[in-house]
Amino acid sequence: MVGKTEVHGARADRERQLPPFAALRAFEALIRLGGVRKAAQALGVHHSVVSRQVSQLEAWLGAPLLKRSAKGLALTEEGSRFHARISAAIGEIAQATHDVLDGEAQRPLRLWCSQALSIEWLAKQIVEFERRHPDMPIELRPSDVPANLHHFEADANIFKHFGDDLHETERGLKGHVLAQLPLLVVASPDLAAELSWVRSVADLLNAPLLHGAHTGDWRMWLIANGVDPPDPLPGELCWHPHMALESARLGRGLALGSRFFFQRDLEHGALVELSVEGATTRAIGGYKFVARDDRWSTPRIATLREFLGERMKSMEGPPTAVA
């Protein structure tokens, strides 16, 4: 025999539960819009789904909400009271959501990007983007590591990816390759003139190489060009890409990177591209825009992604050697 305390406890547990929200939405929309098909259209589902969800809600509650007859559907007395209360609750949820999204739209879109790309190229593009879209401010954060988008640390990331990582994105996120550019070998004009003896990729092993935070980029580029790099790889470790860039400007050695990194220095003549016979013009890796899958199509993220994609694509293609 079940005691009163157990019955009361079971009832209390059930009262703390909520029926499936999809079923609540279906029932609310059916009554508010006056029909199964209209509710289905508003919710973006087949009309049979609405009917099934309403029946599931009645089964969950253990009480009929609708009277079904040849003339159509009508609310039961209990269904009328239930609809009035959940309709108000769903309306409150919708308004609260609108308020949050409205506030979200007022703050800058937070974009994290690798430091080199941020400083040497992207910051200028963001100025132009905000000029075109004054209602879409961007907060650009140069970073060595991507933001945790799952935890809303930022709205989007732009970082360089290689291999399978370029075309595969972790679950819950969505990615788009903005551009794939070949890597350039650059030097100061004076050093480039001194290195006229460099004819092949293999010759570079005897030239003063500059490494940023690691030797990985040079090593990967040499392998892609058919040269087996020694270990350790010769050259100066500058510990940061911008230190390597500054060393290249000062004529201390050869730097390796994409046109995004060197664009301003190439335009102003501070650096020139070194002509290396037989060097590949094939892109190694690419810059990928990544955002949460559930926010991918929001106006600000979509507009920024398309804008940067167009800007980056215009720079793709084989580089032109000038030294």
Rank of each mutant, 00 (worst) to 15 (best):
M1S: 00
V2M: 03
T5M: 03
T5A: 03
V7W: 15
R14G: 01
R16M: 13
P19T: 05
F21D: 05
A22I: 09
L24Q: 00
F27E: 04
E28A: 10
R32Q: 01
L33Q: 02
G34V: 00
G35H: 01
R37Y: 05
K38I: 01
K38V: 04
Q41Y: 09
G44Q: 10
G44L: 10
S48G: 15
S51A: 14
Q53V: 10
V54N: 04
S55R: 12
Q56K: 11
E58I: 03
A59H: 12
W60E: 14
P64S: 09
S69H: 01
S80T: 14
R85K: 04
A89F: 13
I90D: 01
I90L: 13
G91A: 06
I93A: 15
V100Q: 13
L101Q: 12
D102P: 01
D102C: 13
E104T: 10
E104Y: 13
A105Y: 08
L109R: 08
L111N: 06
L111V: 08
S114Q: 06
S114E: 02
Q115R: 11
L117N: 00
I119M: 10
I119K: 05
E120S: 09
W121K: 04
Q125G: 04
Q125S: 07
V127W: 11
E130K: 08
P137I: 03
I138P: 01
L140T: 06
P146F: 07
H151W: 14
F152M: 13
A154Q: 02
D155T: 07
A156I: 04
N157I: 08
N157D: 10
F159I: 14
H161C: 09
H161G: 04
D165C: 10
D165W: 13
R171C: 12
V177P: 00
L184A: 05
L184T: 01
A187H: 02
D190W: 12
D190A: 15
A192Q: 06
L195G: 08
L195W: 07
V198F: 02
V198M: 05
V198D: 08
S200H: 02
A202Q: 10
A202T: 07
A202F: 02
D203M: 04
D203L: 04
L204D: 02
L204C: 07
L205K: 11
A207W: 08
P208E: 15
G216M: 13
D217L: 15
R219P: 01
A224L: 06
D228Y: 03
D231K: 01
P232M: 11
P234E: 10
G235L: 15
E236C: 10
L237K: 13
C238T: 02
C238D: 05
W239H: 15
L245Y: 07
S247A: 14
R252I: 12
L254P: 02
L256P: 02
F260I: 01
F260S: 01
F261G: 05
Q263H: 11
R264S: 15
D265Q: 06
H268C: 11
H268G: 07
V272G: 03
E273T: 11
T280I: 03
T280N: 00
T280V: 00
T281R: 07
R282E: 06
I284V: 14
K288Q: 14
F289G: 00
V290T: 03
A291R: 04
A291F: 05
R292V: 02
D293N: 05
W296K: 02
L308V: 00
G309T: 03
E316G: 00
G317D: 03
P318S: 14
P318H: 11
A321K: 08
